[in-house]
Design a protein around this nucleic acid. Structure first.
Lengths: 356, 356
DNA sequence: CTCCTGGACGGTAACGTTTCCAACGTTTTA
DNA sequence: TAAAACGTTGGAAACGTTACCGTCCAGGAG
């Protein structure tokens, strides 16, 4: 065993530009020039340097590079909620793709639920010198970002305390479309299930109300149900309660994909128990996988979530590079109705309630 | 306007330890000591330093910190496929949580499909001096990671060319359980749909075969369907074809969540066309949202995917900190059958085929 | 032939932190 | 009382890169 362990040697290795320079018999600056595009270096010299790089397996240390003043790191930060929610997953995937195409990596902050945790996560990310932040903000004040010296793009909803770029969907329009659709079927008593008061939900409710006003139909405030949580379980419970009332609604608008799931679950249970005096129409907000394969395919108001992520990443990259110096932008993507069946049930749809 | 713009000032600001030291009237080393836990600093001095930190809004520059030899950055890299797949999303979420609890951020590499893109993404990540890599590997050779000097944990499947930690589910056991379950119902002709030859799929097939052998039933090789893609569409097409054969199977094992979706889609279409001479039993691999709400709830072989991500992150953190110096580990999580209905259909289930 | 211009290249400072070492003052021990 | 030991502090080197500045040489103009 005259040779050293390759693994050990490799661990100590990690050649630097200095090693490359020595190997190629050139100066440090020349290596740097070659690595960065090679302008102002003779072809022959550049070849020699590149050869040395290959032989040593040199890779530029991005950390050291980012340390230089002015040079921002080539990574973006993404702060969002539960990746298990396909909505967030789509945003992450899309922004990741766009960033990757420009050679940027994406750092995901650990995302707690409370605003305090979000703030901590963001500051963690800022201390890592990311070139920009994409944030799906929580409710807290985000003024602390003002002086961070890093471009910020908010996704899906604006944040309070700071004026920054924002990419979102037309929540109010979506809520309006959903309500208009149900009203057009002749529904007069439409329940709306609201997840905890995020900005988006408020907008969807506003659209819902506007559609009613335009149609000359009063909103029964007892059918505007504010849930304590944005989970399917909470929606299931609320749906059960509202549908068992004597004056049950003839339609339900679920303001979220998870809520729609809960509504369907509740209806399924009630149906099988014969407790459903009539089958309500259902419209959800945001499309979800298998929505078209359920016993009654689910009508939803949908938007291009991936485009949300792509737009945010593109905008942020332009801000980070200094290409884009316009005042804070506000990008709003449209919503469209996807009719699948559940939203087209007329008010009178017979249920199969047995004698109570 | 005697004052400078606060925003502008803030942009130029980003106070350093040197600023803090000057402000507190202490040396640079002292500030560093305070920031890192404050051992060996008099209480009164530490107070003064902390006051200066608060006044200036100082935040440690993690990039500069990671530059020091020995000090690895406090971020882990995660390389995986389509985040839109709930399987990957669960892994990402879980590992993110564990990493976050230890103060680590997670960097997601941009993930192309081809092995070459994966290699590029990994090297990008390595050049960012991450403390460790979690990889859901593609098929290519991963020997190039051997000398990277960074701990690696593979997730879901092993990689060739390198001996490293691996966290995975019991694919063979899962395949076996699925087949056993169907065989126990009396099924003798079971089709299995295979996504492109990943390691995991091969193992599931092996378990499938073993169960058959144990039961004394021959596998009809024409029912072992290798798909060109792992998409629902490919599975839908293959299911249509196999179910229209004269000797159609009485059961189908979909080796992936997306494939299960395709199977159900095809069956739905065939059913509505009256082309289904008999209703096959269906078992999927990996659970998916709404599986229990479909017209026939879907029986699946499932495992704790989140635990996959958590284990991987924990193991990697221990490796990165040097706490864990054992030889490469192999963690295998169990699979269990979730019976929901589709997998419990007996072989004779009448379809509703009309005269062709 | 000389001077000047300009391209190619080498050397060095600087980025912000950690770590080591030396220096200082105070207290304990001989 | 002197020496040693210890805890606290300041200063400087180093991490790997980029940017700037100066030097050198070749070639063109005068």
């Amino acid at each position: 065993m005259s040779e050293t362990f390759p693994s050990k040697a490799a661990e100590h290795a990690r050649p630097t530009m200095i090693d490359v320079a020595r190997r190629a018999g050139v100066g440090l600056g020349t290596v740097s020039r070659v690595v960065n595009g090679g302008h102002g270096v003779r072809d022959e010299t550049a070849q020699r340097v590149r050869a040395a790089i290959d032989e040593l397996g040199f890779q530029r240390n991005e950390v050291a590079r980012a340390l230089r003043p002015g040079k921002k790191s080539t990574s973006l930060a993404l702060v969002l909620g539960d990746l298990t929610n396909p909505f967030y997953a789509s945003i992450a995937k899309a922004s990741l793709e766009v960033a990757g195409q420009s050679g940027y990596a994406v750092v995901l902050g650990s995302v707690d639920e409370d605003p305090e945790g979000e703030k901590r996560a963001i500051q963690e990310l800022v201390s890592r010198q990311v070139a920009g932040l994409m944030i799906v903000p929580d409710q807290g004040d985000h003024a602390f970002l003002e002086g961070a010296g890093v471009p910020v793009v908010f996704v899906d909803r604006p944040a309070t305390g700071i004026d920054a770029d924002i990419v979102m969907v037309d929540n109010e329009g979506g809520g309006r479309i959903a309500a208009e659709h149900l009203l057009a079927q002749g529904h007069q008593r439409i329940a709306i299930l609201l997840a905890p008061s995020y900005y988006t939900i408020g907008r969807r409710l506003r659209g819902f109300r506007r559609a009613h006003r335009a149609a000359g139909v009063d909103v029964d405030e007892s059918l505007v149900v504010q849930l304590p949580e944005g989970t399917a379980e909470a929606a299931e419970k609320a749906t059960r309660e509202v549908m068992l009332r004597a004056d049950a609604p003839t339609a339900i608008f679920a303001s979220t994909n998870f809520l729609a799931e809960g509504v369907l679950r509740a209806l399924g249970v009630l149906r099988s128990l014969g407790e459903l005096s009539q089958e309500p129409a259902v419209v959800g907000f945001d499309d979800f996988r298998l929505a078209d394969m359920l016993p009654t395919p689910v009508t939803v108001v949908a938007s291009d979530i991936a485009e949300l992520g792509r737009s945010a990443a593109r905008l942020l990259l332009d801000r980070a590079s200094g290409t884009d110096t316009r005042p804070p932008q506000r990008i709003v993507l449209p919503c469209a109705l996807i009719e699948r069946g559940s939203g087209e049930r007329p008010p009178g749809s017979a249920g199969n309630r047995t004698a109570g």
